[in-house]
């Protein structure tokens, strides 16, 4: 019997091309978000030219419906959009997964109450629910994030409850229960490490849904409020230009798509790398 201390998950030397592209663009978006004030050629709200000027050396992407530099606004928009979506996703995951795991492990009335409440929330179309709440409550960042996080956590709850219920029935969890372990150990040490793979891939997906959701809200005028820039709001501001052949509204829309694809490429790759529960190679 030869003994080697090989770790379970060793970083693969070779990163697949899809993942490399995803990593590059996700990195690009993230650093754009972080260093927005340093990169942006013009301040956020400054009117620097005429309305809807075409692309030029001075304004690489042209100007918007008020004559602001489109590129600068896109860069600031990246910051706003990614920040709100990330915080909302983090909130929904913390809330959803802890409640979902607990429901699966505790079972009984707790599971029943939680699941029915979640069913209730999910039975109302998310966008309509958000519109009603946002039209009543003051439209600020905190409300927006709390609302998005809570609504999204229902989906995470469903997923983590299903995954945890599966793992909860396995012999090693029963062994822990027979040992007399408390719920915290069972949830965080026995179940969580084995539930990470599906949760990580869901994380990428939910982050993108958060971006889309925020963009939709902003497009409807209930999300990020002017003068702050965000992608959905920029599509709204410039949508009338499309009729005149002005591409300003398409730029932020394209960026939303690019972010969605690149984050998912990364999530897929992470999923493949960590799916070796039984020493397999995942599905990649």
């Amino acid at each position: 019997m030869s003994v080697s201390a090989a770790p379970l998950v060793k970083a693969r030397r070779r990163i697949p091309i899809g993942a490399a592209i995803g990593l590059f663009f996700t990195g690009l978006f993230l650093s754009t978000a972080i260093f927005a004030p340093l990169i942006a050629p013009h301040p956020l709200g400054e009117i620097v030219g005429d309305v809807w000027m075409p692309m030029s050396a001075k304004f690489p992407l042209g100007t918007d419906n008020l004559g602001r530099d489109l590129l600068s606004r896109m860069i600031y928009g990246t910051r706003t959009t990614i920040f709100i979506a990330a915080v909302a996703t983090a909130l929904s995951f913390t809330l959803g997964s802890i409640l979902g795991f607990t429901a699966a492990v505790v079972g009984g009335w707790f599971d029943m109450t939680m699941s029915r409440c979640v069913d209730l929330l999910m039975s109302i179309p998310t966008l309509i629910f958000a519109l009603v709440v946002l039209s009543v409550l003051p439209s600020n960042l905190v409300t927006l994030i709390l609302l998005m996080g809570t609504l999204d956590s229902t989906r995470v709850y469903r997923l983590s409850r299903a995954v945890a219920a599966d793992i909860n029935a396995m012999d090693f969890v029963e062994a822990a229960k027979l040992r007399g372990e408390g719920r915290a150990w069972i949830i965080f040490r026995e179940i969580l490490p084995n539930a990470l793979s599906p949760l990580v891939s869901e994380l990428g997906l939910r982050f993108i849904f958060a971006v889309l959701f925020l963009s939709a809200l902003s497009f409807l005028g209930l999300g990020v409020q002017p003068p702050q820039a965000d992608w959905g709001g920029m599509v709204k501001d410039n949508k009338d230009g499309i009729v005149f052949g002005i591409s300003a509204a398409l730029m932020p829309a394209a960026v939303i798509g690019a972010l969605a694809i690149s984050v998912n490429l990364v999530a897929d790759w992470i999923l493949n790398r960590t799916t070796d529960l039984k020493g397999g190679r995942g599905n990649g």
Partner: peptide, 23 residues
């Protein structure tokens, strides 16, 4: 009690699902 639990241990048929694969 914890001591009663300690006195009674169990070994399962399928050893690969009786151990947490992440430990």
């Amino acid at each position: 009690s914890k001591d009663d639990l300690r006195q009674l241990q169990m070994i399962y048929q399928m050893a690969d699902v009786a151990m947490n694969p992440r430990h």
